[in-house]
Amino acid sequence: MRVGIVGYGAYIPRRRIRLGEIAAVWGADAATYERGLELHEKSVPASDEDTVTMSVTASRRALARAKIDPSSIGAVYVGSESHPYAVKPSGTIVAEALGATPAVHCADLEFACKAGSEGMFLAAALVKSGEVQHALAVGADTSQGAPGDALEYSAAAGAAAFIFGSSNLVATLEAQVSFMTDTPDFWRREYMRYPRHAGRFTGEPAYFKHTLGATRMLLEKTGLQPKDFAFAVFHQPNGKFPMRAGKLAGFRREQLEAGWLSPWLGNTYSGASPIGLTAILDQARPGDRILMVSYGSGAGSDGFVWTVTERIDEVRAAAPATRDQLDNGKLYVSYGTYAKLRGKIRMGE
């Protein structure tokens, strides 16, 4: 049975902070960061936005493109490392808001930055097995870096949602793989406010080993080569890593640019490569092949090969385009406002 994406949607908050604004507070050289990480600004969630609100809006946009009855959704998976509750699922709120309850299987997933693609992997497999008619997978995060840490320059907010099914596909799933090892490159212990990372160990032995490993597995499984793809998108912890991974894997810059959002979006963690995929679908043509590889610290990568169908042209305009959300209606905030919005200011009783 053919399975794939029936509808997709993205949500990017309107607020932004420029890298120079952060660097000025911590006495860092903004130009070094902009050049070294290829980052210019990042999205900032408002005080009334969180993983749940962004997931609901992205999912409603996916529903608008899928044009299905929400009660036919048999599974809802929300992947995030910033669920609003420590105990109580985000997925129940999302499913209730969409009108998918009560006949629905639901779980919150967590795997650093790849929790979103984990849900996609499961959703596709459940539809393929015939267990459910439609399944929703969301990747969303409002990530935090410790003040002054390198992560603070990239940790951003955004969400992407995909509804999987076996008919009316906009993109057919050709193959999916997972490449995983135990690699302690980034973590957050219980009750800790900010994550810790292992500096340069997050690069070659972590990000590159797993993204390139998953890409190799996908190419071997499908018998395809980089030239057979119109687009490729990799996890985007900054602007530099996904371009480098893509080039090491044999892709050209033109194949990577459509889904490369991080220089102006930052790292949306569980939303990163999924939001990149939505930007690609916004401009892909029927027959285009897309390679997508996520990465989550800890560590692992999920890889997917999609082929775009004719239906893409019918559904594209049914919801806001991802690039439009990234480029338009931006509200720039100062570091002071950012610190307030992100709860970094200690308040009185």
């Binding site: 005080s47 009334d48 936005e49 969180d50 609100t53 609901v56 609003p84 808001a97």
Partner: peptide
């Protein structure tokens, strides 16, 4: 109308979600 947090019951209580208008 967009789905947003409306209010929360301190740091330990429930979070109330609903809709706000956006441009």
């Amino acid at each position: 109308l967009e789905f947003r947090r409306i209010q929360e019951d301190g740091e330990a209580g429930v979070i109330a979600y609903g809709h706000k208008a956006v441009p």
